[in-house]
Design a protein around this nucleic acid. Structure first.
Length: 507
RNA sequence: GCGCCCGUAGCUCAGGGGAUAGAGCGCUGCCCUGCGGAGGCAGAGGUCGCAAGUUCGAAUCUUGCCGGGCGCACCA
């Protein structure tokens, strides 16, 4: 039977209830191990009293294999107490699956391209782009874990006006002059000036180094200039266009966007950025991807309608073009919120941020908040109190377990407890049993922030269990508890990996 | 003006129709003869921006208003 232990139970109950049952973990222990409110939802439709429906379902539920007790509470909640057999079986599933536990749920399996960061190489990676990377890479990791085939791509423009300004700024420094007013003034411009040659390749190389340090590896790097030469003409032929005021326009307003866009400029007769966007999309799907994911900051959210319109115009199903928008990041340093602008050199770069707080904390902070949320990170706090960061709390749980397993030597991790499980043991098993659902929802919703939040709960439950019960030297419970430790470690390690954070054996 | 995102504890944030709204930090206390104290336990702290609506039930869904962020180029 497919699905997790919780899913299977929910499916069995759905059968009994004649309606889809969602099982939740109640906030209070007296409400059982799992609970559902189906009766409340179903009763009005059937013209019956909720409690009555719940009572019937309770009577049927106790006949199920792993259900020990079923109570009706409140207006019609059904509270379930699980039998010891459920815990044994659940723990066995985790241990048997090992690192694969909770993954492989993609259906159908797709070839997915995730395009992320894609900052033009006019300067070092700044923290808002880092959120793009942390978010996009975690989405990519979730999709990979789900079983999809994923490629990460970095797309950049090496020939636009921004790049001209950038090169001009470097040239100015080489002549010993100040860069133009609208140019780039950062210290890195001086360094590039000293090196000689086109500053773009070294800048790009630096970006790649920074992102690798941030644990993001790209499969492909796409240049807009090459795209324009090779593929813009073909794309133009496929667009729905018209001429006006000496320019060629795309009729995007007829394809869901709120305005039309210039494809060929009247000023110089050259294709504009829109033409490159269209050519780029054709290229993505020409390479055989089932789905193209764009990761964009809120400052580019105006692209959404435009990209969707392009897909319709090109005859590409818009659902295959997925645009993920994340909100911006503010850093506060010494109580002051920094404004990030590459042109004035008054920036906090990703490298500086990593130097300050470490890669693990940097990735954790950037991905543990909902992507729809504008976030503010207090750099001093993150750095100074790094010991108290949630990321270390979770890593500590992992390292602690690693320590126990090291000390365990040849002792075998088992699955069956000698008797009744203690409440803290039940809590750990119930928590890790939630993982498949958490990770699936996180992947489907493109919401990786729920992974670190869940990981904190696992660490919580484990620390509580550890504090209350001995593992090694725990007598006849030792084997079962070692199994519990290994299962918890497996889940924590996976959570950390999904957000690009290391799972240390020692701290 | 139009569009997108957001207003939840002092601060940073979870919570995607259900029970008495949660966590971390900060604040008050308590717990080390033992596997890692980077730990555990307890407490104080809330008109979930405001107002209507839908619902048996709303922080959650709808609408309006208020407040904040970001977009609305023949720029990239």
């Amino acid at each position: 039977m497919p699905g997790s232990a919780v899913d299977r139970l929910a499916a069995e109950l759905s059968e009994l209830a004649g309606a889809p049952v969602e099982l939740e973990r109640p906030a209070k222990a007296e409400h059982g191990d799992l609970a559902t409110s189906v009766a409340l939802r179903v009763a009005p439709v059937r013209g019956r009293a909720p409690r009555e429906v719940a009572e019937e379902l309770a009577a049927a539920a106790v006949g199920l294999e792993h259900v020990e007790r079923a109570d009706v509470a409140g207006p019609g909640f059904l509270n379930l107490w699980l039998a010891g057999s459920w815990f044994v079986r659940t723990l066995s599933e985790v241990l048997d699956a090992g690192p694969a536990f909770g993954g492989g749920f993609a259906d159908p399996v797709e070839r997915v391209q995730v395009e992320l960061v894609s900052a033009n190489p006019t300067g070092p990676v700044v923290v808002s782009a880092a959120r793009n990377g942390a978010y996009g890479d975690s989405v990519a990791r979730l999709l990979e874990f789900a079983g999809h085939s994923v490629e990460r791509e970095y797309y950049y423009n090496d020939a636009g006006r921004q790049m001209e300004r950038f090169r001009a700024s470097v040239e100015a420094r080489r002549r010993g002059e100040e860069p133009p007013e609208d140019g780039y003034h950062g210290e890195y411009v001086r360094e590039l000036a000293r090196a000689g040659g086109d500053p773009v390749p070294p800048m790009l190389a630096q970006i790649e180094r920074t992102l690798e340090r941030f644990r993001i590896r790209f499969d492909t790097w796409e240049l807009q200039s090459e795209l324009e030469e090779r593929e813009v003409p073909a794309a133009l032929a496929r667009l729905d266009t018209y001429e006006r005021d000496g320019a060629i326009w795309a009729r995007t307003s007829a394809y869901g966007d709120d305005k039309d866009w210039v494809v060929i400029r009247s000023t110089d007769g050259k294709p504009g950025y829109f033409a490159a966007d269209a050519a780029y999309m054709l290229r993505k799907f020409g390479r055989g991807f089932d789905r193209a994911i764009y990761v964009l900051g809120a400052d580019h959210h105006g692209y959404v309608g435009r990209l969707k319109a392009i897909s319709r115009m090109l005859g590409i199903d818009p659902v295959r073009v997925e645009i993920l928008v994340y909100q911006l990041v503010h850093l506060s340093v010494r109580g002051e919120t920094t404004k990030m602008s590459k042109r004035h050199g008054d920036v906090v770069t990703l490298d500086e941020f990593i130097d300050e707080v470490g890669v693990d904390a940097a990735r954790w902070y950037l991905v543990s908040r909902g992507h729809d949320q504008t976030i503010e990170i207090d750099v001093d706090l993150a750095a100074e109190r790094s010991q108290k960061n949630p990321v270390y709390y979770v890593q500590y749980a992992h390292a602690r377990i690693a320590g126990i397993l090291r000390n365990a030597g040849d002792a075998q991790a088992g699955r069956a407890p000698p008797g009744e499980l203690a409440p803290e043991e039940r809590d750990v098993v119930k928590r890790i049993a939630e993982f498949p659902r958490v990770v699936r929802e996180s992947a489907e919703r493109r919401a990786p922030h729920s992974i670190p939040i869940y990981a904190i709960r696992v660490a919580d439950d484990f620390h509580r269990f550890y504090h209350r019960h001995r593992v090694l030297g725990g007598g006849e419970s030792e084997s079962f508890r070692l199994g519990l430790c290994r299962a918890a470690q497996t889940v924590i390690a996976r959570c950390l990996d999904l957000v690009g954070v290391e799972a240390p054996e020692r701290m």
